[in-house]
Design a protein around this nucleic acid. Structure first.
Length: 230
DNA sequence: GCGACAG
DNA sequence: ATCTTGTCGC
């Protein structure tokens, strides 16, 4: 017997609480994902990420709002909620999305685009956390991951800006992108309302002197309770 | 059946 | 993700 996890209502619809039910729901929600660029001129961009405390008992979700022009933080919001589900590869959004949505709603206003830590459509059922977040929030989203979940790719150049397609089941689902000379590449994939071609361009637009784009880096820092680094 | 496996 | 100090390299 599989132990059912707590259901909230909003991000999971009528999920039955089982991993099998979660996978079915992902296939349904994936049909609502749009890979066509559909976002306003970028004025603000948000970065969201999750961290844990108390040995995993408490989930910390952080949302940071940045000025799209200067990449400087405008506002940030942090929430702490009891962890409701264990980490299961492929079902990350069911563990982190509730907290992420709360963190996002705590910002002074909705962003024009959201950078999410993890995969967009580069997922077994085309619904990584960034795509899931996009569908349930209606916001344009991009997934920026540090590792590949699924898919393969050709050799990648070693210079900043070099990129190659991430292919899975004969389909291009994302981009393996070298954000800085010599660093491990980022795995970028559209979440919602962003095209495969635009995603890496938008990410590079937010990269300054670090491997991670600013929205992701700042949210990551806040969620992991770390300090700044001048 | 055997490995792989975002955070 | 998290547990954790110093250390190697640009």
């Amino acid at each position: 017997m599989v132990a059912p996890y707590h259901v909230n209502g909003s991000p999971f619809g009528d999920w039955d609480g089982t991993p099998a039910g979660a996978r079915l729901l992902q296939r349904e929600l994936a049909k609502q994902v749009s890979l066509i660029d559909d976002f306003p001129p970028l004025r603000t961009i948000a970065g969201v990420d999750v961290g844990f405390e108390e040995g995993g008992a408490v989930t910390r979700a952080a949302a940071v709002l940045l000025d799209a022009e200067t990449l400087q933080p405008i506002a940030e919001h942090l929430v702490r909620v009891p962890t409701s589900m264990p980490y299961i590869p492929g079902l990350l959004s069911f563990r982190e999305l509730p907290a992420v949505l709360q963190a996002l709603s705590g910002l002074p206003h909705a962003p024009d685009l959201v950078f999410c830590d993890g995969q967009g459509i580069a997922h077994p059922r085309r619904l990584g956390i960034a795509a899931h977040l996009g569908v349930v929030s209606g916001l344009p989203t991009i997934g920026v991951a540090k590792k590949i979940l699924v898919g393969t790719h050709e050799e990648l150049g070693t210079s900043r800006g070099d990129q190659v397609d991430l292919v899975y089941q004969g389909e291009v689902l994302g981009t393996v992108l070298r954000s800085k000379d010599g660093v491990r590449p980022l795995i970028v994939s559209p979440g919602h309302r962003v095209s495969l071609a635009s995603a890496p361009l938008l990410v590079m637009t937010c990269v300054t002197r670090y491997r991670l784009p600013e929205p992701t880096r700042l949210a990551d820092r806040l969620a992991s309770r770390r300090a700044a680094g001048r």
